[in-house]
């Protein structure tokens, strides 16, 4: 510290060294400290002053008083000293917020995917082998093609695959929940939070869940059937209509039959900028069967309301819609 008494500075340094947790260093400091004090009476006096000051602090350090003392010191700490720190923290938070928001909206796996679509975007792509893949909004896939297999990893979202025939290389779709093995076919794969849903438009696929014991036969589903893959295993779902499903993908529609309203709102969210907020508990009992336009989510929301008169939609801004069902 500039302008401080050099003797006091030394005394402070000595006293700190005497508190070293390494016994060897402490012993050495003690030896040297005695010598330093003996060298000049002012040294001893300075050390006694610093030590006296510390004595007052140490008196409060017992188990009974340290916590109340810390609480009191925190309460009385000068706000002036704290403010730049708080402002700095606030600024840091502000700077980190977009990154956090971006990461929560688009996790790294999504950002690093080979193919991906943003909110409200659709994309169709013909892959090297002639397979056609359509990505719905907010979807991401990684492609792993090699000489022996064609593997597509669905990181998030909803895809329609029209697999080109290649007897030598099977076509596989992997999600966090399981694997779908196509046997030359057209189907959709929707990766949701706790499950993956497969719907068959043509031909058939065989499906295994990730946690399925080896040796257990995969479930085979054919056109017009669906399956759900969860951690628990693969189960058959409700039948689907291949023609209207194909239609829905061409026209960018969401076809739902008997699905919880919350899930439908989540799907709609993927197709519109901003957010749809709802109280999951309040709308828990509501289930939807509908065909909803995904390119016009405002209309989709209005359609939903018309089938649920109890539903209240409040558009706070074009980017924030509140959905609830007041009792």
């Amino acid at each position: 510290m500039t302008g401080a008494d050099p003797i006091l500075e030394q005394a402070a340094a000595w006293i700190v060294r005497l508190g070293d947790d390494d016994p060897a260093e402490r012993a050495e400091a003690e030896r040297d400290f005695v010598r330093w004090k003996a060298a000049d009476p002012r040294h001893a006096a300075a050390a006694a002053r610093i030590d006296g000051l510390l004595g007052r602090v140490r008196a409060l350090s017992g188990p009974a008083t340290a916590r109340p003392a810390l609480a009191a010191l925190a309460a009385a700490a000068k706000p002036r000293a704290a403010r730049p720190l708080a402002a700095g923290a606030a600024l840091l938070l502000l700077l980190c917020l977009p990154v956090w928001a971006a990461l929560s909206l688009w996790p790294p796996a999504y950002l690093l995917a080979d193919l991906r679509t943003g909110t409200g975007q659709w994309e169709s792509r013909e892959l090297a082998d002639g397979t056609r893949i359509t990505l719905s909004a907010n979807s991401a896939v990684n492609l792993h093609y090699d000489a022996t297999s064609r593997r597509l990893e669905l990181v998030s979202g909803d895809i329609l695959v029209d697999v080109a025939k290649d007897a030598a290389r099977p076509f596989l779709v992997d999600t966090a929940h399981g694997r779908i093995r196509a046997l030359g076919t057209r189907f959709t794969v929707d990766r949701r939070d706790g499950e993956t849903v497969v719907e068959m438009l043509d031909s058939s696929t065989s499906i295994t869940a990730r946690g399925q014991p080896a040796g257990e036969a995969p479930l085979t589903i054919t056109a017009g059937q669906s399956a759900r893959i969860t951690a628990a295993g693969v189960t058959r779902g409700a039948p689907v209509d291949p023609a209207s499903l194909a239609d829905a993908w061409t026209r960018h529609q969401l076809v739902v039959s008997d699905r919880p309203l919350a899930e439908v709102l989540d799907e709609l969210s993927r197709h519109r900028p901003g957010r749809i907020l709802y109280d999951r508990d309040q709308i828990a009992g509501l289930r939807v069967s509908a065909v909803l336009p995904l390119d016009d989510t405002d209309r989709a929301l209005r359609l939903l309301r018309s089938s649920f008169p109890a539903l209240r939609l409040r558009t706070l801004t074009p980017y924030l819609v509140l959905v609830d069902a007041p009792p």
Partner: peptide, 15 residues
Amino acid sequence: LLCCHLHCPALAEHG
């Protein structure tokens, strides 16, 4: 320690 001593000598004297 030094800062405390400079700004509040009373603390040291009490001790």
